[in-house]
């Protein structure tokens, strides 16, 4: 599943962007160093292939529903981890731009969730180890299925973590996890079966295609380096973000105190507190940073709303009216600009 911009906070989005961009830079350098100049067009065309393949559906037996290939593991098997990661990333970029799948800021998350796990975790650590050098057919099948399933558990797990850490959606962590993982276990099974069937099809027709990727020496130290790089990156980003958040610790504590201490309202559950605290931590421009807007009654900071509710319920009406006016103005301005354009085009005739 794609992570969406609408569910994302800037801190989480930014961190994942940095992580994905870093991995893209690393993989690009690696592919460039390989000096196989046929690889770049091959990656591009295989990306287009994956795109086309995802448009074609098959029916899943016994369910009446249909599915399509995800392809992360397949690309890793065909191209090796670095090229596969780049290819997956590029497919996601095109999807984000043209079909608005996910969105541009969520792209960092999506590339990481759908590219990093199959290419840099499942393929080198699980697939290659379980496969051995000369696998039997049945071994090849079950290893592929197993790997696809792991990949499709790690991805959704990351989606859940990113969503919860962003704190825009309020679905509790456990519930969300329970919703996501079992479905993806089934999806992973199907993906695995299809992937292994395609791999064995290729092996029968052109076995030499599967060799280069398998033969490419994938030194484990390079993976370790990536992981260490990530850790550093995450720590650095986290540091920056928390520096932001703790710039005004009093305000934060004040906000939390207001939430927990709201006497006339029902006390909120501990989960909400955590979420709210997370939210307070990860919002890049916390509202309490701007005294100007804090004096207006904004529903943004729960504390302030509670505080102001009994007094000025009129302000929310004002907000409503104002919003309508703004929307009207926006639509009008668009229409006027468009009219002017049309007149420019047809005015000569």
């Amino acid at each position: 599943m794609h992570m969406a911009d609408a569910l994302l906070s800037p801190a989480v989005g930014g961190t994942m962007w940095a992580a994905s961009a870093g991995t893209i830079a690393y993989c690009s350098a690696k592919v460039k160093r390989d000096l196989d100049d046929r690889k770049v067009p091959l990656m591009g065309v295989l990306g287009a292939f994956l795109f086309a393949a995802q448009m074609i559906n098959f029916s899943i037996p016994g369910t009446g529903s249909s599915g399509h290939l995800g392809g992360g593991l397949l690309l890793a098997i065909l191209l090796g981890p670095h090229a596969a990661f780049l290819t997956i990333a590029s497919v996601l970029l095109v999807q984000a731009l043209f079909f608005a799948d996910g969105g541009l800021l969520a792209l960092g998350c999506n590339i990481f969730n759908m590219g990093f796990f199959p290419a840099f975790v499942v393929y080198p650590l699980v697939y290659r180890n379980l496969m051995g050098t000369r696998p039997s057919r049945s071994r090849e099948t079950w290893v592929t299925v197993f790997c696809a399933m792991i990949g499709l558990q790690l991805g959704p797990l990351a989606v859940v973590l990113e969503t919860v850490a962003s704190g825009i959606a309020e679905l509790p962590f456990e519930t969300f996890l329970l919703l996501m993982l079992p479905i993806h276990l089934a999806i992973g099974l199907v993906e695995g079966v299809v992937t292994s069937a395609i791999v064995s099809f290729v092996r029968k027709a052109r076995p030499e295609l599967l060799e280069p990727a398998a033969a490419a020496s994938f030194a484990t130290w390079s993976l370790r380096r990536v992981l260490v790089g990530f850790l550093l990156l995450a720590v650095a980003t986290g540091g920056v973000v928390s520096a932001f958040a703790s710039k005004d610790p009093d305000g934060l504590e004040w906000a939390i105190a207001r939430i927990t201490g709201g006497s006339e309202l029902q006390p909120r559950g501990p989960l909400h507190q955590t979420l709210a605290r997370l939210q307070g931590k990860v919002v890049l421009f916390p509202d309490y940073d701007f005294p100007k807007s804090a004096s207006k009654t904004e529903p943004a900071a729960p504390a302030k709303v509670e505080h102001s509710l009994p007094v000025h319920s009129g302000t929310s009406l004002a907000g409503m009216v104002g919003s309508l006016v703004v929307l009207l103005l926006v639509v009008l301005s668009g229409l006027i600009l468009k009219k002017r354009n049309l007149r420019k085009v047809y005015g000569i005739h």
Binding site: S28, V40, P41, G44, V45, A48, F51, L86, S90, V91
Partner: peptide, 11 residues
Amino acid sequence: PKVFAVQLLFL
């Protein structure tokens, strides 16, 4: 990175 850009154009 250029490799990535070129590859995107091919895609």
